[in-house]
Design a protein around this nucleic acid. Structure first.
Length: 477
RNA sequence: GCACGAGUGGCAGAGCAGCUAUGCAAUGGACUGCAGAUCCAUGGACCCGGGUGCAAAUCCCGGCUCGUGCUCCA
């Protein structure tokens, strides 16, 4: 089955053909660590994590690179406010990022290059651009000159040079910079007093925002690579600027074969922003929900669609995830994972899941299949189904919900959670059983008031009592 | 204003030419002292107007509405 990938540049799904057969270079723009990571970062990271997992499962040898922009205006001003070094601040939030990613079960990328560790490469790229006549020194910095290659303008956004010229005229003067044209962008910014800086042929300064990614992708993936991704908010101007820089510097195009972009996360229908007070950091979210439930909720829509983060979707994710985990845990502890390749129903499910994932990584379709396998496993477990079948279903879930979607903790974790809740159960069992037998006596004598009172008490204590056709059962909330 | 994208049942959200999406909710039933859980069943949708097709939610044209980008942003 061919992998289809939606490419922002051509605005269509295209068959994935890599530059080198069986190998794939993927660069995804990472974060600027100036504040704690938020759920938008989580969605970006999880989307690409699953894309990488899937491509690897499909047989590609993937080299996955994602960066940190560890020097930038916002980092500097946040560090100044606290009176600390900018790198100290950046490191703090990078470590926050890694903690969150680990919790969310995001597999580490193959490399996490940083701007501050790529300065020589950046300087060399800027020098090249100057030499080739694509850039100029403008007093307070070195700028890329858009007019040198107008045909490259708007490759990702569909805008032309003229449109933007018409739309934003007059802004040049306001910026007060040495730009010749307001659409030109900085490659190197000269340092103002007190700012962190590196020596360069043009004076002490630091890289502009866009050049870092061109330099880092070149360094790690070479002069041409397969996929470049990031949040859809980076399409303009960041990724367009990268196209200018990389293609002009290297002298060929395209440098990037496929551009992919994940959609934004809104909160209760509104754009997430600090000023609206609806800003969710990942740590905030993890205080209220399990990290894997958050992961589940964030892949409940295809990665390109904008998604709304709200109470309903969280509760949905919570109930689905807990059913998935419970079934998997029971399957694991009673039978274990078994080969399912002879099971026609499971084969159909994986076919359909693969079809969805091959069609631009549709995790929503994948979840539908996971739900349907879980449902069947639940009823097998409840009705005392054949061991082989339970094992097959458990194996399927481990493979797809676990390895591909990353929704399950490690098997040892699943089992120990199961055990600890069992031991918790056995601790309180005598007391509960005692109350229940009193309740049974009350029920036998049709003293419903007393029976209900006992049930309510237990409920308040966190024990759910259910009268089934085969007698009374109870479990923890 | 320009660009890009989206408008599907009560809600979330797939499908992108012919075949039940799915989940939650709802309704009816089974079970129950009641509640819950579970099981069975049922109803319900493709923004509007044209066009192409044997056939359109799905393609084309024109509207309308919404979102995002055009300044930093995953």
């Amino acid at each position: 089955m061919t992998q289809r990938v939606y490419d922002t540049r051509s605005r269509s799904k295209r068959d994935l053909v890599t530059l080198e057969e069986g190998k794939l270079g993927l660069y995804a723009c990472g974060i600027t660590p100036y504040s704690p990571s938020h759920i938008g970062h989580a969605r970006q990271a999880i989307s690409f994590d699953i894309i990488v997992r899937w491509l690897r499962k499909s047989g590609y040898e993937v080299n996955y690179i994602t960066n940190f922009t560890d020097v930038d205006d916002k980092i500097i001003s946040a560090a100044n406010e606290e009176g600390i070094d900018f790198l100290e601040l950046a490191n703090r939030y990078i470590s926050d990022y890694f903690n969150c990613m680990d919790a969310l079960n995001v597999i580490r990328a193959d490399a996490y290059p940083r701007v501050t560790e790529t300065i020589p490469e950046i300087i060399s790229m800027v020098s090249d651009l100057l030499e080739k006549g694509y850039a100029y020194e403008g007093g307070d910095g070195v700028y890329f000159e858009i007019e040198t290659s107008p045909e490259k303008y708007g490759q990702l956004t569909g805008q032309t040079l003229e449109m933007v010229r018409a739309g934003a005229g007059g802004r040049v003067d306001k910026t007060g910079s040495g730009k010749r044209d307001h659409r030109d962008f900085a490659l190197w910014k000269m340092a103002k007093p007190g700012e962190p800086s590196w020596d360069s042929p043009w004076g002490a300064g630091r890289p502009g925002w866009h050049i870092e990614c061109s330099a880092m992708s070149l360094k790690h993936l070479g002069e041409r690579f397969d996929i470049h991704g990031g949040g859809s908010d980076l399409i303009f101007p960041h990724h367009e600027a990268e196209i200018f820089q990389s293609e002009c510097c290297l002298g060929h195009d395209p440098v990037v074969q496929y551009w992919i972009h994940n959609g934004m996360v809104n909160v209760e229908g509104e754009k997430m922003s600090k000023s609206l007070g609806n800003f969710w950091t990942i740590s905030d979210a993890l205080e209220k929900i399990d990290p894997l439930v958050l992961r589940y909720s964030l892949i409940n829509a295809p990665y390109r669609q904008p998604m709304d983060f709200n109470q309903v979707m969280l509760e949905d994710a919570k109930s689905h995830h807990s059913r998935l985990l419970t079934c998997y845990g029971e399957g694991l502890s009673t039978v274990g994972k078994m080969d399912w390749s002879e099971n026609t129903f499971l084969l159909e499910c994986s076919n359909s899941l693969e079809k969805g994932m091959n069609d631009d990584f549709n995790t929503r379709t994948a979840l539908v299949e996971v739900q349907s396998v879980t449902k069947r496993l639940r009823s097998l477990l409840d009705s005392g189904g054949k061991k082989e079948e339970i094992g097959e279903y458990t194996g399927w879930i481990g493979e797809y919900a676990g390895e591909v979607l990353g929704l399950l903790p490690k098997d040892s974790g699943v089992l120990s959670t199961l055990k600890s809740s069992e031991s918790k159960l056995s601790d309180i069992a005598p007391m509960v059983e005692d109350l229940l037998s009193k309740r049974e006596k009350a029920r036998a004598s049709k003293d419903w008031a007393l029976a209900d009172e006992i049930r309510d008490e237990l409920s308040e204590a966190g024990v759910i009592v259910e009268d089934g056709s085969n007698g009374v059962t109870w479990r923890l909330k």
